[in-house]
Design a protein around this nucleic acid. Structure first.
Lengths: 351, 351
DNA sequence: TTGTACGCGTTATCAA
DNA sequence: TTGATAACGCGTACAA
């Protein structure tokens, strides 16, 4: 692979001149410039970004850590981040943690060795303050947390108001006539899961509705837990008429559980959930869900991160960006108490 | 950020010794080793991989290019690739091309500048031989093509037998009693799209069934084209009773079209398709689909690529790996001619 | 077994 | 405007 030296020799100029042509930092005489360009073409020269990174002490690479890119919500986040990053010449190094804190720790270490300029992070569940994140910050590497906030750490972030969104969602279930409403939460080591539970409790409380302990089940945001807990709840002798499921994957699990038990949604159980991937919207039952702007999570996060990087303002007080959500009301929450005649004609209300 | 020099100074040894401790290339006296380890700990030293890459002339980074990570098929591919790569210490630099050849060209150029050790590539549609791929190969960068083969280029690859899979799938539609069967293809600039069309034609031909030209529509593997073409076909006066849709996204579009027209699957139209993301399997209608081992595409591809990289055998004759597919038969292809009484009880036959 | 010195390909500084 | 040269941080001969 050709080096800048070879280009310089072929063009009959010094390496400094070639560098100036490439980066455009200093002006170069027109004739020499042309000679250099021709040599670059001829040798099919591609500047060595590794060497440049070493010299400049920045790599123009961003770490992108999500729990599972296979979840349509996160693949959208990544997509958004890539778009914003690429636009400014940054590349994405992506990783999945499957929500394992240990894996997150390893990835963070790798990323520090790779000298990425910054990190976009969807944190894994953690009971205690994740020291590896603190240390990354302390090392001067900007981190922007997406969707979830790590406990006890002041860090830039892009989030939504989970409490309000969950509350609105459960309110809707109540408005549909449901009184016995259950919830399947994510791991309570995750801020988002806690907040959605809180929103649920608020809505129930302000409507003076009892919350039976057995209707509150704790999952882990994965499909299998939705399935298991769904089965359990549905087999209670006093089962709820509606279920608020804290994320999409678990809602899919609940649907499977319904199917197993010969039950149907919404006939036997109303369902409302979080996350609203376009891909599922064409199938039945259409899920009532809190839509989160997944793409914007990534895009906005990357923009914020790059701004931090380039303005060298790490250590300032954290910036937290709040994105809006929308409650998309569809057939899965149409209960026995209020079921329109028409099928498939549901409106999309927003907030 | 600490350097190897500082570690050496703190431990009271030379940089060579520190390097030996880190890489394990030469043995170091136990006591000194401990001192070094302690110094590393204390300084929170993370070896500079940029410098190492420059010295070693390899980055332990792989380029991963897909059309759209938002498509569950490709997110699985990426996931598999990451798993295999990480296991051997390689990192993934991921990119989406949205099937634009120009974008692919740019990304390839960036990747060469970044000095990635190899590239996993899902090629974009291309009418002519993509010279940028040839040149990447010529530059000595191993490339493994996933899922699709670029026209006229001998390159390592991981694919499935699209012709056979499509044929089996259409045969199934025929066996269900359908005689008027249409197809929505992807861009015929894509090998996979061509092959699936070919499989369709073979199945129709060997069953002595006519193929009405108006039943053969050319999409682009995106949902919107499935919707548009689905509408067109369904509004023909002599419309088919079954449709073979060449990929998942377009199938979702067709479902939407059905809905718009007040029709239902499978009552008014049987559907069979390609790709079979787990996420959709819990919804109705459950789609009959050719399952492709998406995760394995990535995993196997990365393994093959790394083997190429580490054995330095670029330029040898290309290796092509064929992965098996499975036809998953579900309710979407249950036609009026053969419809079991039970709902939701469909078997999964495989080949 | 340990230390020294060179080079990887750039960019930036400085003198010409 | 141009050319020569010193870093950037590391791994690895080679010498000790």
């Amino acid at each position: 692979m050709a080096t800048i030296k070879e280009v310089a020799r072929l063009a009959g100029v010094s390496v400094g001149t070639v560098s100036n042509v490439i980066t455009g930092t200093a002006s170069v005489a027109k004739r020499r410039k042309e000679r250099v360009l021709r040599a670059i073409q001829e040798l099919n020269y591609h500047p060595n970004y590794v060497a440049r990174s070493l010299k400049l002490q920045r790599t123009k690479m961003l770490g992108m850590i999500v729990s599972d890119i296979t979840n349509p919500f996160f693949s959208q986040v990544v997509r958004g981040a890539e778009e914003a990053a690429l636009k400014q010449g940054y590349l994405l190094l992506t990783f999945n943690t499957d929500d394992h804190e240990e894996r997150e720790r390893q990835v963070l270490s790798v990323l520090r060795s790779r000298r990425v300029d910054g990190i976009l992070l969807v944190v894994a569940p953690s009971k205690t303050k994740p020291t590896h994140i603190v240390e990354t910050l302390k090392a001067g590497i900007p981190v922007v947390c997406l969707d979830r906030l790590p406990p006890g750490i002041a860090v830039d972030s892009v989030t939504v108001d989970n409490v309000a969104a969950a509350r609105e969602c459960v309110r809707h279930l109540i408005a549909q006539g449901n009184q016995k409403i259950g919830i399947i939460t994510g791991s309570l080591a995750l801020a988002t899961a806690q907040q959605r539970l809180l929103g649920y409790e608020k809505a129930m409380h302000e409507a003076n509705l009892d919350v039976d302990k057995r209707w509150v089940r704790r999952g882990d945001f994965r499909s299998e837990s939705g399935y298991q807990l769904g089965r359990e709840i549905l087999q209670e002798e006093n089962r709820p008429t509606a279920l608020f499921v804290s994320n999409n994957l678990m809602a899919y699990g609940v649907l499977r559980a319904l199917d197993d038990l010969g039950l149907q949604c919404p006939r036997d159980l109303a369902i409302a959930t979080f996350d609203d991937p376009a891909i599922t919207q064409v199938f039945r039952p259409r899920l009532t869900a809190v839509f989160q702007p997944a793409y914007s999570f990534g895009y906005t996060g990357a923009e914020l991160l790059i701004q931090r990087i380039e303005s060298k303002t790490t250590g300032e007080s954290p910036i937290s960006i709040r994105l809006p959500t929308e409650l998309h009301i569809r057939e899965s929450s149409a209960t026995i108490f209020s079921r329109p005649e028409a099928r498939g004609e549901w409106e999309t209300s927003s907030t």
